[in-house]
């Protein structure tokens, strides 16, 4: 059963793994990291739970942030709603603002995981669309005990 429609992983239920996060995007002070969860969702050993965190270290606010993801047809991806769509400007005397978003990756055929993202946001008045690809996922055999 490839569909992820019925799978929902609450952020609080996620145990972070010891695997290093992967930097998916890092430009002009806007950084997006993929952190990998230790375990798969109950009953879905084929699904990798990823916590996407978006950080702003730029002196400008970043608004209207939307992340989209695409995966090879043999896989499925689902993005749960993000914790926000705006990041306030960086202030050295406060912790950086962050957005977290849970992303689920189903890979039943255990192929090498690849993901393409499309990121749209407004930095100051400047509207941007960025695309990129991420392929440094943990080896699929380790999904579920990271």
């Amino acid at each position: 059963e490839l569909s992820l429609a019925s799978v929902h992983v609450p952020l609080e239920s996620i145990k972070p793994s010891s695997a290093l996060p992967v930097t998916a995007y890092d430009k002009n002070g806007f950084r997006i990291l993929f952190h990998f969860a230790k375990e798969c969702p109950p009953g879905r050993p084929d699904v990798l739970v990823v916590v996407v965190s978006m950080l702003n270290t730029a002196p400008l606010p970043i608004k209207s942030i939307v992340l989209q993801a695409a995966v090879p047809k043999s896989m499925k991806v689902k993005l749960q709603p993000p914790s926000g769509t705006e990041l306030s400007p960086f202030s050295p005397i406060q912790p950086p603002a962050a957005i977290t978003q849970v992303m689920l990756l189903a890979n039943p055929l255990k192929e090498k995981a690849r993901l393409r993202y499309r990121l749209t946001f407004a930095l100051g008045e400047q509207l941007s669309t960025e695309v990129g690809e991420v392929d440094q996922f943990p080896p699929v055999e380790q999904w579920g005990n990271l």
Partner: peptide
């Protein structure tokens, strides 16, 4: 970038059915 084996872009549903 080979486009053939990738599926379409997915985005978060704004109102999560929950």
């Amino acid at each position: 970038m080979d486009d053939d084996d990738f599926g379409g872009f997915e985005a978060a549903e704004i109102f999560d059915g929950g």
